[in-house]
Design a protein around this nucleic acid. Structure first.
Lengths: 220, 220
DNA sequence: ACAAAAGTGTTCGATATACACCCATGT
DNA sequence: ACATGGGTGTATATCGAACACTTTTGT
């Protein structure tokens, strides 16, 4: 069985009103010099998720505690070296710490999902799957809040939703629903970018847990 | 890299008002004599889905055209032989042809999902994932109809939904919604099991496609 | 003063849910 | 005749969608 297993990871964040994915520049062939998802070979006794997180840390310096499995990509010709099946993972991060390059990567960077350069292997395809999954998660999870820093304004949150769902939302309806859910704590701080300052909020995970137990979902 | 890849498949059907999964009895260790999902090692140049379908045919005689990937199960200790990662698949079938035993399997049978015997490996866990996926699919796909034979009665369809969703539905509301969708063609045939005969219907895939294009979902 | 983005309520239509009785058949 | 499961309609509550103007700031 000359089949090898890699674990790759798609890490999204949302900064400057743009959804970004964490990529590294490949040091070695194949696809040397191209941008690619962080990832690498799974070691023999290592759980798949751990392998993805380990590679992420090695290649970008970003240390995360968990990732969710996206699925496996096993087209026999996806890697020119031979049969290499990739188990793709997904993670969302709030603040986007400046990535540092690591082993096997000569560069690590957050790139806007909308304007990606040509990527190695089928990584563009994997990112598409990840985006689709993110869209789904927006409806029933805290995905949206995980992508923003702890303090955020409602226009920021709305832009995030509009970006990921790829459609314009109604400002008033959006705010009404958020208010109704009661999972946002208004702060006495304002963000003074643009013209009129926007009030900042904090997400309240505990309230959200309560809602989930009651089976209430996000209405988008 | 001494990691091996298997492709396993969960095939569901719904007969006699019961949801069933297709299992085979293992001829060889490990877990010799236990029931397990159809599946086996992926060959070097074989797509994952094809591997699952090939193993299904070899072990049960059931020949299917497609399966959807469920995810990969890679706990390092899931297989006593060593590191073997399984890519699990899901398929739904209408009629349930009598399975025949094949290579590596001394028996193949449809077993009720609610009352499974002890299974090999983590296959019970895989079946749980498959069930969850099926529940999700019921809402936005033709999954329900794929599990029944071409002609079916509304009570049968309702029982199927109740079984998979694991809750009682209101007869009148259920029928109203189905009628509203307009994807069922009433036939001039009646099923005379039980007491009063139940009218039979046929699912109209074309109407369903039209609904999907309009973005209309199933309301359960 | 003006441009640009933040903030705010109401109305309406659609849809999910709750609910009770009659009907056709087999025994 | 009766037991069993098939079949039918209405009323109410909830939720999502549509929609326009005022406010605050920077230039």
């Amino acid at each position: 069985m000359a089949i090898c297993l890699t674990a790759d990871i798609v890490v999204f964040t949302f900064t400057d009103a743009v959804l970004k994915v964490l990529l590294v520049r490949r040091k070695k062939p194949p696809h040397q010099g191209r941008m690619a998802l962080p990832g690498g070979f799974v070691s023999e006794k290592e759980p798949l998720e751990k392998a993805a997180l380990r590679e992420l840390k090695e290649e970008t310096g970003l240390r995360l505690g968990a990732a969710e499995q996206l699925g496996s990509f096993g087209d026999p010709r996806r890697d020119p070296r031979g049969r290499i099946v990739s188990v793709a993972h997904l993670a969302l991060v709030a603040a986007a710490p400046a990535p540092r390059a690591g082993s096997n990567a000569s560069q690590a960077a957050w790139l806007p999902v909308k304007r990606l350069p040509p990527l190695a292997f089928d990584h563009k395809h994997i990112i598409s799957s990840a985006l689709e999954r993110l869209r789904d998660k927006l409806d029933y999870s805290t995905a949206g809040f995980q992508l923003l820093s702890q303090k955020f304004s409602l226009p920021e949150l709305e832009t995030l939703y509009e970006t990921v769902l790829d459609r314009k939302l109604d400002k008033r309806n959006f705010r009404k629903k958020m208010a109704l859910l009661g999972i946002l704590k208004p702060l006495n701080e304002w963000r003074r970018t643009g013209r009129k300052p926007a009030r900042l909020y904090r997400f309240m995970p505990k309230k959200f847990e309560k809602l989930k137990e009651e089976g209430i979902l996000f209405p988008f």
